[in-house]
Design a protein around this nucleic acid. Structure first.
Lengths: 249, 249
DNA sequence: TGTTATATTATGTTCGTACATATTAATATG
DNA sequence: CATATTAATATGTACGAACATAATATAACA
């Protein structure tokens, strides 16, 4: 038999998916829900824990329970990929080090705006760098990366980037005092362009992976974008998706 | 101030990390722990929920709480990607339909074994197909896919594949009565080969994404592998990684 | 001996109560 | 009018009790 909290969780999930509670709206409080469903507050809280775990709602003291998504973001039955840190998103199998080539402030023209997924005219700090394996005698770069950081953080980033060996995303989080809530990633097949062929030690037109990563704060504000070019023979993007059940047997 | 359940969770986490409770051992039951820490059973259960969420322990009725790992496996702060189903792994933005081109039983030679990640000599049922957008007048395929299914399921798959519109993975799960526990995915940049240029309506050597997906029952039982070739102009692989935290602000 | 009832056990569910705490809204104060 | 104080509010923490359920161990029985 379906437990009562599972029943409450299911009804609420269906109501949210069905549009009864649009994103951003606030659910009735726990006591009201308890009365509506004729269960105790503890049962409502157990149901809420499920909704929260699946990413449907967020909760805050006295602000109530707000709907964040219409469908489960972190489900139980499907597959999940877990990355323990921002760095892990990059998934280089090996240790790499960054060699900064150029730093410049740029304004997005139409082409760049399309590449980055921002509006034309937006101002960015661009940091271009190569990634290498430390101690590699051939000095063959793994990839070329252009990191675009919101102009608002440009001065701080410029002054602190030298002492910073981590990925730039962590630096932006440190400077802004905020945390990224989402990373959008886009992988395409491209050819190595003429400009990049030489620094990458590849032939122009050679097969390569182009990876775009957009780093967003909670309000859908894009604070950073990175564009990487990986020649095909040096990199493949690997993920392991695990079925997630925490119950035993 | 540290809450009591957080205190209990911390002590238990430290005790596990410190080797006091080796992997596979069973913790004292909830009533005993409640007495040890001088808290109520509810508080112990709240602490247990934390340990379970971080992957340190698993629990089963009457079998108790067993230690599964010494350090947190799913810590907060990282990012996760959630796929609701096996199909979602493919992440075509649009509805697509499969057009089977060839079906054959094959034995992996050295080259194929390397491509699939299996041992040479293993027998597979290979199903080659094109994926199209229904109603597309130009009939331009999205991708070419070779699906390799374990020989053991070959006969069943052959007889049931016509009535099956879903991805083959679900068919294999249905036939075997087992569920995949892991999908390994590998994305590389390649050129369209001469054989595939014509069916894909692409020029030989054109930039393309090659995606290999290995479907595993357990960590060493690979039941299915798929190799897809996506011409660059028709597909990009997109993922959204969400921060795990569900607290607000 | 093998199979079927029965008791035991540890976690799971549900209730109710009480107080804590963070945030917002209302009110009083300078 | 701006600021400090207070009240109201919704979630968070903590307790204790009772019963449910699944798995295991034990006893009863043929």
């Amino acid at each position: 038999m379906e437990t009562r909290y599972a029943y409450v969780a299911r009804l609420l999930t269906e109501a949210i998916a069905g549009g009864r509670h649009p994103i951003g709206s606030v659910l009735p409080n726990e006591f009201e829900l308890a009365e509506q469903f004729a269960v105790s507050r503890s049962t409502v809280r157990a149901a809420m824990r499920e909704l929260q775990a699946s990413g449907l709602v967020s909760r805050k003291r006295n602000a109530g329970t707000r709907v964040e998504a219409l469908t489960p973001q972190r489900s139980g039955g499907g597959f999940t990929q877990a990355l323990e840190s921002i760095e892990a998103v990059q998934r280089f199998g090996v240790e790499t080090e960054r060699h900064v080539q150029r730093v410049a402030e740029v304004v997005a023209d139409d082409a760049l705006a399309r590449d980055l997924g921002c509006r034309p005219g937006r101002r960015w700090l661009r940091i271009s760098s190569l990634r290498m394996i430390p101690g590699d005698a051939t000095k063959t770069p793994i990839c070329w990366t252009d990191v675009y950081i919101d102009d608002a953080f440009a001065r701080e980033v410029r002054s602190r980037m030298d002492g910073h060996r981590d990925i730039f995303g962590t630096l932006v989080e440190k400077i802004s005092g905020r945390r990224f809530s989402e990373i959008r990633q886009d992988i395409r097949a491209v050819g190595v362009s003429h400009d990049m062929a030489e620094p990458l030690k590849a032939t122009p037109g050679a097969h390569a992976l182009a990876i775009r990563r957009q780093y967003l704060f909670s309000s859908n504000e894009m604070a950073e974008v990175s564009l990487s070019i990986h020649p095909a023979d040096r990199y493949s993007y690997t993920t392991r998706l695990m079925r997630k059940d925490s119950e035993r047997e």
